[in-house]
Each structure stands twice: as structure tokens, then as C-alpha cells.
Nucleic acid binder design. Structure first.
Length: 263
DNA sequence: TTGTGTTTTATTGCCTCC
DNA sequence: GGAGGCAATAAAACACAA
């Protein structure tokens, strides 16, 4: 049983006893009647407001609750002096005041948890919306990449055909224009496959490489992994220092036999 | 009026602090 | 070891629909 301080009144003790007895002996009607008679006599003997309030569970008055609420706003914990003072002011037992504060703290905690839950839920919804949007964007970009790749492969196939059909072109002619027409992606029979694309300044190989890298980057996967820097770094490391320096150089293109190993 | 759900008041047992 | 806090719970009081 809970221990009580000496400041707690006899009325509080009666309250505890009555509730305990009622709970314990409910099935026994005779005992209950006897006990009720005892309570009645007690009430008659000590017919103060205090006694009647504690014998039955009474709700606090609006004014009392208002005052308690006001005090709770100031400080939600109760020092003994403040408890005593409040109890005197409101005509309550110090224990009642303490219990009220305890229950009020519990209610506050519940509300606080609810508020936190609502905030977290809102946060989650916002994140989910953002994620969905990114996923849609990713799908669209992946589709674009696929289309571009297909287009490039078509071009590659066409240019391979034309290499066999066309007569050899002398080195004195414009290197760039010749290569751009006939030697794209022909790694197997050309030691210098990087051709500068006249339209955008990127070689077709470079463009293909970019597409592949982009693809590995833009595939989101099934989690929140938006970007895969390790993959990119590993791929970049395939270049030797010299090759990476000359990758976009027209004058000295790197040898990229690794690029299409299956060909 | 009554059954039912919610709120408020109070108890109990355990824990921590001094 | 006493005092007080907290979680869980009981039980009275209250609100409200059927």
C-alpha cells in the first residue's frame, strides 16, 4: 500500500479504507451493508465538507480545476509547500492536489505523444510524396536513357556497314569528319576509336559511356538509395591516369578495349 | 431508462533519490 | 527507509445515443 505523509488527513485515510474495503468485499452484501452503515455513521459524526468529499469520489469544482490548471501551467511539479498552500486555498487534501497533478502530468504526456505522432506522420507523408516524385522522375529518365542507347546502337550498326562499303579515305582529308562517319564503336579493327561528334562536342563513345554511368546512377533500386557514388568511382578508376586525361581529347584519344569486351 | 464509451479521481506497486 | 514520481488499473461520474 502507498505510504502517506503525516500531512495527509484522516479523511484521506478513510477514503483509502473505504475504497479498499468496498473492492475487497463487494460479493458479500451483508458485509457491504454493514460497512455502508459504518460509513454513514462516520459521515454523521464528522459531517464536514472534507469528510463527505473523500467518502465518495467527487469531482472537483470548476473553480478548483481552473486554479489547479493555472498552477500546472506555471510548474507541472509540486513542491510540498506549494502543495500545502494550494490545498488550503482550494479546500482540498494535500494528497488530492498531489494526485491531481500526477494525473494531469499523465494526461499531458499522452497529449504530447499524440502531438509527436501527428508531427512524425506529417513528416513521413511529406517524405513519401518526395520519394514518389523522385521515383517517377527516375523512371522517366531511365526510359530516355534506354531510347538514346537504342538510337546509338542503330547508328553504330549503320556506320559499320558503311565502313565495308566505302573505299579507304586518305589521312590528308579531314580526320574528324571521316571518323565521325565511319569509325564509331569499331574497336575491334580500329586502334583509335574515339571520334569527336561534331554536333555536341562529345564523342559517341563518351556519350555511350556517359549513358551507362548515368544509368547506374539513376536506378534508384527498392530503397531510398538515390545515388551510387561507389559504382561511379569504380568505373572511373578503370581509366588510367593518361587515359582519363585524354578522354575528351581529339588529338590523342585513349585506347578503350575494355569498353565493349564482348565485341 | 439503460447500455456503453469517455473522463476524472483515486489506489497500488514498483522505482529512484536523498 | 521515507518521500515522491510514474505506469497500470479500478471505479465513480458523466455524456449520449437508442
Amino acid at each position: 500500500m502507498k505510504r502517506f505523509s503525516s500531512s495527509d488527513s484522516f479523511a484521506a485515510l478513510v477514503s483509502i479504507t473505504s475504497s479498499k474495503e468496498e473492492e475487497t468485499h463487494k460479493p458479500s452484501q451483508g458485509y457491504a451493508r454493514e460497512f455502508q452503515a459504518m460509513l454513514d455513521s462516520l459521515e454523521e459524526e464528522d459531517n464536514t465538507e472534507e469528510a463527505t468529499h473523500t467518502l465518495k469520489k467527487r469531482r472537483l469544482t470548476l473553480d478548483q480545476v481552473k486554479a489547479l490548471e493555472k498552477n500546472f501551467e506555471v510548474e507541472n511539479k509540486l513542491e510540498p509547500e506549494r502543495k500545502q498552500k494550494l490545498a488550503e486555498e482550494l479546500g482540498l487534501q494535500p494528497r488530492q492536489v498531489a494526485i491531481w497533478f500526477q494525473n494531469r502530468r499523465a494526461r499531458w504526456k499522452t497529449k504530447q505523444l499524440e502531438r509527436e505522432y501527428v508531427a512524425l506522420k506529417a513528416n513521413y507523408e511529406a517524405l513519401k510524396l518526395n520519394y514518389d516524385s523522385l521515383e517517377r522522375q527516375n523512371e522517366s529518365l531511365t526510359l530516355q536513357v534506354k531510347e538514346l542507347k537504342a538510337k546509338l546502337r542503330e547508328e553504330n550498326a549503320d556506320s559499320s556497314h558503311s565502313v565495308k562499303e566505302e573505299p579507304p579515305v586518305s589521312e590528308s582529308e579531314n580526320n574528324i569528319s571521316v571518323h565521325s562517319q565511319s569509325h564509331e564503336f569499331s574497336d575491334n579493327n580500329n586502334s583509335n576509336p574515339i571520334i569527336k561528334d561534331q554536333s555536341n562536342g562529345l564523342s559517341s563513345h563518351a556519350l555511350m559511356n556517359w549513358i551507362q554511368l548515368s544509368e547506374s546512377r539513376t536506378i534508384l533500386g527498392n530503397g531510398f538509395q538515390v545515388y551510387q557514388p561507389h559504382v561511379k568511382l569504380e568505373e572511373q578508376n578503370v581509366f588510367s591516369t593518361v587515359e582519363s586525361c585524354n578522354f575528351f581529347s581529339v588529338d590523342q584519344a585513349p585506347i578503350l578495349h575494355w569498353y565493349y569486351p564482348e565485341q
